[in-house]
């Protein structure tokens, strides 16, 4: 039978290991911390159609992740979707004529926002709006456009 001291130490180690594992799951595996938090600033962008964009989707510049989508809401006045982005403070020199586009990762992947920086010398300040946006590509719209243009062209490919 181990002495009380040994047992205390072993139990303490066990509990610590369990808590470290939980902490690891929370911080490294899940989005518990939001991983940006206070070291980030918000931007907004308006889209005609956000498609399948979800909260927590990534925001990239040149394919590098710089932030995430914080919230998506509908503006009943303009019938637009208002998307709030959270950008890491390290990237606070994004020009104010930057273009925000909704992309799809791969053919079946999730949707995310890509920022194409413009040439303006003035950076976007926290809370400002990215004015130039391009909505998500909706497959049905693309097909109907394609069919429409085919029909206009007069050829009957089907």
């Amino acid at each position: 039978m181990q002495s009380n001291r040994t047992i205390e130490v072993m139990v303490g180690t066990f509990i610590l290991a369990g808590l470290v594992a939980l902490f690891f799951l929370a911080i490294r595996v899940s989005n518990f911390s939001g991983e940006l938090g206070s070291d980030s600033y918000p931007l907004t962008a308006r889209f005609d159609n956000v498609g399948g964009l979800t909260e927590r989707a990534k925001v990239t510049i040149a394919g590098v992740r710089v932030g995430r989508v914080e919230s998506i809401r509908f503006d009943p006045a303009t019938f637009e979707a208002v998307v709030t982005l959270r950008i890491d403070n390290r990237y606070n020199q994004i020009p104010d004529d930057t273009f925000a586009k909704i992309y799809t990762a791969g053919l079946l992947g999730e949707q995310y926002i890509g920022l194409d920086p413009g040439g303006s010398p003035f950076p976007l300040k926290p809370g400002e709006e990215v004015v130039y946006t391009q909505s998500a590509l909706v497959l049905e719209d693309m097909i109907s456009q394609f069919l429409f243009s085919k029909a206009e062209g007069g050829s009957s490919g089907f």
Binding site: L25, R28, V29, S30, N31, F32, K58
Partner: peptide, 19 residues
């Protein structure tokens, strides 16, 4: 490996429910 995981695994939906 890590960023996709952090992006898709939700603390309350996944971790807490597992706990």
């Amino acid at each position: 490996y890590w960023t996709q995981m952090v992006l898709k695994i939700d603390f309350s939906d996944d971790i807490l429910n597992g706990v």
